[in-house]
């Protein structure tokens, strides 16, 4: 069967395509943080394979529907192990591609921030505490605490230490590619580096009760000098009012 002889070629072609897609550099338009670049670039890499694959499958279904509609000469089903092996191998190749490229991204410490994530240049430490239904941000080195506003310096490594005082919440800053759950009684960590100044939205992404959808915070990323200025200013107002919280 000459059709069957094409099958190894198909496998080879798919292999070549996924290897190319796995290594080709992709532009990173408008991405705002190191984590976002990693996560969204991976997502686009997967899309590069997934979209053609989806179109191929949908196209095949549609084509078969139309071509073989009212076909007067239906052929009996035969066993075609060569076909079955081919598409199994193709699927395995594609999943190997997904697995390896995900692994490579995870290998970058920014994403897989385990508890032992001390790094060469000292990161900016931020303690994030979720509680019903607001966010508290503490800068332990600076003795500054704010509510629902997080101010960060651009281009510095940021280490979030995340916890909760009541139920589970989750820190979710989609524009920066940050997501990490906040558990009571535990501390989780997430590391990133924001490369663009700007204002971003922080959502709570774990259902925490009636105020869940209002548990939003603003992330303001500013140039490092401005950040220092903000810290000083904040310290001053904080010492004026002993338990002051940020008005915003």
């Amino acid at each position: 069967m000459n059709q069957s002889r094409l099958l190894p070629l198909v496998v080879l072609l798919v292999g070549l395509i996924v290897i190319t897609v796995a290594v080709v550099p992709l532009p990173t338009p408008g991405y705002d943080s190191v984590s976002e670049v990693l996560l969204r670039t991976l997502h686009r890499r997967l899309l590069l394979v997934a979209v053609p694959l989806t179109l191929l499958v949908e196209g095949a279904i549609l084509y078969a529907m139309i071509t073989f509609h009212a076909n007067n000469d239906p052929k009996p089903t035969e066993e075609r192990p060569s076909f079955e092996i081919t598409w199994t191998v193709v699927v395995v190749l594609i999943l190997l591609f997904v697995g390896t490229s995900s692994y490579l991204v995870l290998g970058n410490l920014t994403v897989s921030a385990g508890p032992d994530m001390t790094n060469s240049s000292r990161p900016v430490d931020v303690h994030v505490t979720g509680q019903n239904w607001f966010w508290e941000f503490t800068y332990p080195d600076e003795e500054v605490t704010t509510t629902n506003t997080l101010v960060l310096p651009a281009n510095r490594t940021i280490l979030f230490r995340i916890t909760s005082t009541d139920v589970i919440h989750s820190v979710h800053i989609p524009a920066l590619g940050v997501k990490q759950d906040a558990f009571p009684g535990r501390t989780t960590t997430f590391k990133t580096n924001v490369t663009k100044a700007g204002t971003y939205r922080l959502y709570c992404a774990e259902f925490c009760g009636v105020g869940h959808s209002t548990m939003l915070a603003t992330v303001r990323v500013v140039a490092p000098p401005e950040y220092q200025q903000w810290l000083q200013q904040h310290k001053r107002t904080q010492s004026d009012r002993p338990q002051a919280t940020d008005a915003t």
């Binding site: 996560l39 969204r40 991976l42 997502h43 997967l46 694959l53 279904i61 994403v111 590619g177 774990e206």
Partner: peptide, 25 residues
């Protein structure tokens, strides 16, 4: 035909980094 989309988005979710983006959304 709809299962194809459900399945392929499932593979996306199985990839940990992509899941970090879209988990609980």
């Amino acid at each position: 035909s709809t299962f194809a989309v459900g399945g392929i988005t499932g593979v996306f979710l199985a990839s940990i980094p992509v899941d970090l983006l879209v988990h609980d959304t």
